[in-house]
Design a protein around this nucleic acid. Structure first.
Length: 361
DNA sequence: CGGTTTTGACCCGCGC
DNA sequence: GCGCGGGTCAAAACCG
């Protein structure tokens, strides 16, 4: 495998790097530093990705089916994968949708971010119960504690992205129940917490608006759906035949399933856009168009296979990406990633839409 | 009336 | 140990 060093763009969370790191800029907890390392490969596989991630022990990454399959899928779609390892040597990876540098290539880079400590420690409860109400709370707390202690909570892979949208909660085809809202430090905009309403589906997502650019919504998905998108049935209800998931994506329904679900949601998007809701479904739009080897439109019954071996097929067929990415960014430029990152990150150009995917295991 | 949202309290990890 | 901030719970309010 041939590598070519070109430059890198790293993305870190705020707590990982602290506030105000050099020339980098913060976007509500995400820090974007300058380009410093970047690899270009001629051909790639999911394993090739891992090798390029520079991760010493990447077995954990490969153990995550949806992540592995996602990367494999992205390889076929020539998407840039970004990974990281922090100062403590812990690994995580981040994904940034990008256009390929050259034909037959995908771009991998290495960055940093701190892994989250998932250890659940026992807590000492107050021995004396002073009031009846207090006692009830203690009971509840104890039950919670036992539950959490027994089943060690492990963080699912997380995918974060930013979308320029007037709507905070972007429709993605799934049904969500809001279970919390918190004020975000240094931001006038709160962060909302959602859970998938489907029973036993533990997928969560956070939605917050960037304080540096209030037009940008930062959405973070965590977990994997164990069910198809309700949008599928809605599409079916509309008389649309949905093709089955293909390839490596058929195993499950990741929260940001880069395959089947979003692909199908894409149809809903198009329908909604027809229904004059242009500000919704941008995520679905983007991810679907970027990651699906198949671009199937049930409304036109058209099914395209984007050949992973050619850049032009992707460039010409932006899918719905062009809905959120200015056309001048969709060009076959060797420095695209750098320019892409610069525009979005440093210039705070209001006309620019940032699409960022973060895989945080 | 059932599902969803709101919101204050609580839990937990982490840094000092 | 304490405070802070992120994340979650759960009762009340809201809504179709």
């Amino acid at each position: 495998m041939e590598k070519k060093e070109m430059g890198v763009m790293s993305v870190k969370s705020e707590e990982d790097v602290g506030v105000g790191g050099g020339s980098s800029s913060l976007l509500n907890g995400f820090q974007f530093s300058s380009v410093f390392d970047f690899y270009e490969v001629e051909k790639s596989s999911s394993l090739g990705f891992m090798e390029l991630l520079g991760v010493e022990n990447y077995s954990s990454l490969l153990d995550v089916p949806q992540l592995s399959s996602t990367m494999s899928s992205m390889a076929h779609r020539q998407t840039t994968i970004m990974s990281s390892s922090d100062t403590n040597g812990k690994d995580c990876s981040e994904v940034l949708n990008q256009l390929p540098q050259t034909p037959n290539s995908c771009s991998i880079s290495s960055a940093s971010s701190e892994a989250v400590n998932d250890e659940q420690h026992n807590r000492t409860l107050v021995d004396q119960v002073q009031e009846d109400g207090e006692e009830e709370k203690q009971k509840t707390s104890k039950q919670l504690k036992t539950k959490k202690t027994n089943q060690k909570r492990q963080r699912e892979p997380r995918f974060a992205f930013m979308t320029k949208s007037e709507v905070d909660h972007l429709e993605d085809g799934y049904r969500w129940r809001k279970y919390g809202q918190k004020a975000v430090k240094n931001s006038p905009f709160p962060r909302s917490y959602y859970r998938c309403t489907t029973v036993s589906c533990n997928v969560k997502k956070r939605v917050e608006r960037s304080y540096t650019d209030p037009t940008i919504v930062v959405t973070t998905y965590e977990g994997q759906h164990i069910h198809p998108s309700p949008a599928m049935s809605r599409s079916a209800f509309a008389g649309v035949q949905i093709p089955p998931p293909t390839g490596a994506l058929s195993g499950g329904f990741p929260a940001t399933n880069f395959g089947s679900v979003l692909q199908e949601n894409n149809y809903l998007l198009q329908y909604q856009q027809q229904q004059h809701h242009p500000h919704q479904q941008l995520l679905v739009n983007t991810l679907s168009s970027l990651s699906n080897p198949y671009n199937y439109n049930p409304f036109t019954q058209e099914k395209k296979l984007c050949n992973p071996g050619t850049t032009t097929s992707f460039l010409r067929d932006h899918g719905l990406l062009q809905d959120v990415v200015p056309s001048h960014m969709l060009k076959e430029d060797e420095n695209f990633i750098y320019q892409y990152g610069s525009k979005v990150i440093n210039k705070e150009n209001n006309s620019t839409t940032l699409i960022h995917l973060e895989v945080d295991e």
